[in-house]
Design a protein around this nucleic acid. Structure first.
Lengths: 330, 330
DNA sequence: GCCGCTCGGGTAATGGATTTCCCAGAGGTC
DNA sequence: GACCTCTGGGAAATCCATTACCCGAGCGGC
């Protein structure tokens, strides 16, 4: 409720001095500055953010638009972004696009309207909204998936390679007919994981077959259906590469229902580590992605770009790690 | 980049008319309104949020301050809040206080500065910041835990009752020495769950003993330590009530390491359902809290309070549901 | 002792949308 | 035909912090 003028009046100075003192800007007499701070706390003065942002033409806020708040992979990214942003006094607002291009667009519009300093997003598809960011000159960084049409800073995981390694691991363990349950066509990570899977089969001179591949949303239900479908074929796969955590839940449920034991009957490797992966029997072999580091790296790139938007765009690729537990052994 | 004056010039009207037309406010000639909208889209006009909020003295935003983004219980709440808020054109910004009073305070300050319309928070402790919200007349609603000093709208789960029921269930299954692993003292949900546990023992005329109770942070590591500690006593518990999801992970790890099988050797019931609970062997018996509904209810209360801050505060208590799986059977 | 520079701090312009106030014109009434 | 009412829309005030610009005092140099 109190404004800067109230503080100025109480401290017996001008509003300009209050502003300077509170922002530690120019040289203000220490004694005056103390008087100002005193008056501010006495009044419980909270600077009016909108007024400040209006004048500054920018808010010390970065928007983080992720496709699923309930996915631990993305919340770990959020943590990373938050930790870095806070160090330099930026706030992070988390927006959940739910894999919907429309919601994503809406949040981009809001970010633009609120004049945030920058945006980090995991684009779900073509991301029409991004053009607006570029047009307005707002800094942005893509994570997890690149932006097809725009070149910008991107932080990715070499997920194709990771998928290939995971598949090679299954081959090395003696599985013969390896299947793959991945995300929707057009989603880059889903396509890459499938491509990596095929790379490994080709390297091992195995035949690839579309009958061993299923796609669905990155959710448990879809993966459940896909797994049931795959496993009830005449020649079912004896191992599965699963493209994310939520899908792993669906696949493992399906195995349970069909009475197939992970590992012995059907080897399983899934993307994304989770605290509960070790609790399963057998424990789940996973491809652990460095989610937290994706977040910190993206935040650092964004801050650099906020400072200087003329830098050429960079692509940062982080590696993933195969954690070999028992679900990929007979 | 374009401002309202640019739109006004292009449409050949005044800025006042543009504002009225774009906000669908007063009576504007339909033909004029169309011309304005036309001009706005042609210019790619995005209203300047800070300017709008400055004038309106309020942003169409609600802040949601939760204590842990990585806890599915809280992300489900976030979903609920989001769904309701979006229906009426409000945006939700998610802030992660990490169970730190200081971060919580910081986010409250930011919410105040940005003049958000309302705040929903899961207070971690005494929540000094809340007094500022009350003083400023900003609407707020507490979820999961009540605010000791302030009376406000609150949405709770009858967690004491739920804990008692879960404990009674373990007693009914024939367990003799039931232990409890709960959260830190002073955290209301942790204390309530412990109290419910004791209620049930008392009702069943069992002796309660502090040697069967351990507290730790609401995290896996602490719970792991607590469980190891409990189970390596001379007379270890033969069943455990565990106060949240993350802790369940720690406890189950400990059981695994000690070679005790859930259910047969040590009965386990944990708070919060999770998709992976069914995948364990044996599947985990849980107390499912209606997290999504907490979110929707809190959002509805907040919106009502934004509309009218004079309403008397209400307490909404939702029930939890025991989902009986096999980890609580011998 | 005077000039000029520096430093601290005040005055006022600025950012852009909303909203109050008021006016012009259309339509209605007697 | 004169006057009143009602409606749509323009001019200008407003929200509040920041900052460009400017001024006065104090100090050093010659």
């Amino acid at each position: 409720m109190p404004t800067i003028s109230d503080v100025a009046a109480r401290a017996g100075v001008s509003t300009a001095t209050v502003s300077r003192a509170l922002n530690g800007k120019a040289t203000v007499d220490p004694e005056l500055a103390a008087r100002v701070r005193q008056a501010a706390t006495e009044l419980g003065y909270q600077p009016n953010g909108p007024a400040r942002n209006l004048r500054r033409q920018e808010a010390a806020v970065v928007a983080l638009i992720i496709s699923d708040v309930e996915n631990p992979f993305f919340t770990a990214i959020a943590r990373g972004v938050e930790d870095i942003a806070h160090e330099v006094g930026y706030s992070v607002v988390l927006c959940n696009s739910d894999e919907s291009a429309e919601k994503e667009n809406r949040y981009i519009d809001i970010a633009l309207q609120e004049r945030v300093a920058g945006v980090i997003l995991s684009p779900s598809g073509p991301a029409a909204g991004v053009a607006k960011l570029a047009a307005r000159g707002t800094a942005y960084v893509a994570v997890d998936r690149p932006l097809p049409e725009h070149d910008s800073d991107v932080v990715l995981v070499d997920t194709r390679l990771a998928a290939a390694q995971a598949t090679a691991h299954l081959i090395a363990q003696g599985y013969e007919r390896i299947g793959c349950v991945t995300g929707p066509a057009g989603v880059r990570t889903a396509d890459d994981r499938l491509a990596g899977y095929r790379d490994a089969l080709r390297t091992a001179k195995r035949r690839t077959s579309t009958r061993l591949v299923r796609r669905s949303e990155y959710k448990a239900v879809g993966a459940h259906r896909a797994a049931v479908d795959l496993l009830s074929q005449p020649e079912p796969p004896d191992a599965l590469l699963v493209a994310n955590n939520a899908m792993a839940v669906g696949v493992l449920q399906a195995l349970q229902e069909l009475g197939r034991r992970p590992g012995r009957d059907v080897g399983v490797v899934a993307f994304d580590d989770a605290p509960w992966a070790e609790l399963l029997d057998p424990p789940l072999t996973v491809v652990a992605q460095p989610a937290y580091e994706i977040g910190t790296e993206a935040a650092r790139l964004l801050l650099a770009r906020i400072a200087d938007n003329t830098r050429p765009p960079t692509v940062t690729t982080l590696g993933a790690r195969l954690i070999d537990r028992a679900s990929s052994h007979r």
